[in-house]
């Protein structure tokens, strides 16, 4: 058995537990005293005006961005400013999948190769098992017939569904979505949202940065509102939309819901 084989079931109270996380881009204070805990199977949507630090927040969870103060625990791994190394970055990313706004498929690889390169070369899973997984998850996202296409032969929505399948192939404990539909033509948004909803129904733990308020309300157990690098408010969807407490959230909802 491989040494790095992850435990099948993580028996943790929180899959993500961020405490007093602060981050700067140069002099710009982009994340301010972030405290955020996410329990297994929870679906959390992150909303807020652009530039509020939403994307940076979820990119910090899987260490694509390093934080400069505070500490966090991700899937049982304790992370502090001092122990962020290439090794911990890989360990964290072995537990977390991520779907990007711009899909970020590998343009020189076919759909199948996009899905198997990580498992085979990163995770040392047998080629046979990796292909088996790839086919299974391509079926889940209704993209099986495109298995031999290259990304530039697919529409945006199809590329994003492949990207979702790619992240599933690694059997992540958490899936992060960074504005998964923001780069899509309007008529392609629904096919992607539908796939995410199917995943949610299967019990995947998810953190979703999104501007699709209706979708967030449908799918999320909790919605987090960010502004200027801070978490201003977090509450269940009904309360979030119907009884916002802070002025900033009221103003934000007023802006997006009146259109």
């Amino acid at each position: 058995m491989h040494k790095k084989k992850k435990p099948q079931k993580l028996d943790l109270k929180y899959l993500i537990d961020m405490q007093m996380i602060n981050k700067w881009f140069g002099d710009y204070h982009v994340l301010r005293d972030i405290n955020l805990s996410i329990t297994p199977n929870e679906k959390v949507a992150v909303c807020g005006p652009s530039g509020s630090g939403k994307s940076t927040l979820i990119r910090t969870i899987n260490l694509l961005e390093e934080f400069q103060q505070g500490c966090m625990e991700v899937c049982g791994l304790k992370l502090e400013v001092s122990n962020i190394t290439k090794k911990t970055k890989r360990e964290v990313n072995n537990r977390i999948g991520m779907v990007f706004q711009q899909f970020n498929l590998f343009p020189h690889l076919t759909v199948l190769q996009n899905l198997t390169v990580g498992p085979i070369w990163g995770r040392k899973i047998s080629r046979q098992e990796a292909i088996h997984r790839a086919k299974k998850y391509l079926n889940h996202v209704h993209m099986y017939e495109f298995i031999d296409k290259y990304p530039n032969e697919l529409s945006g929505g199809q590329q994003q569904r492949v990207a979702i399948a790619r992240s599933l192939c690694l059997h992540p404990d958490i899936l992060l979505f960074d504005e998964p539909t923001a780069a899509l033509d309007p008529e392609l948004v629904n096919e992607v949202l539908q796939v995410i909803e199917e995943l949610a129904a299967k019990g995947m733990t998810m953190v979703i940065v999104t501007h699709e308020m209706g979708f967030a309300r449908n799918i999320a157990d909790r919605i987090v509102f960010m502004d200027q690098g801070q978490i201003i408010e977090e509450s269940p969807p009904d309360q979030f939309f119907d009884q916002p407490r802070s002025e900033r959230l009221k103003a934000f909802l007023g802006q997006i819901l009146n259109h």
Binding site: L64, K86, R90, N93, I96, F100, V117, G118, G122
Partner: peptide, 12 residues
């Protein structure tokens, strides 16, 4: 972004 994607699919 290609480096980011490679890291998130577990590649060293």
């Amino acid at each position: 972004e290609q480096y980011d994607a490679a890291l998130t699919v577990g590649l060293g």
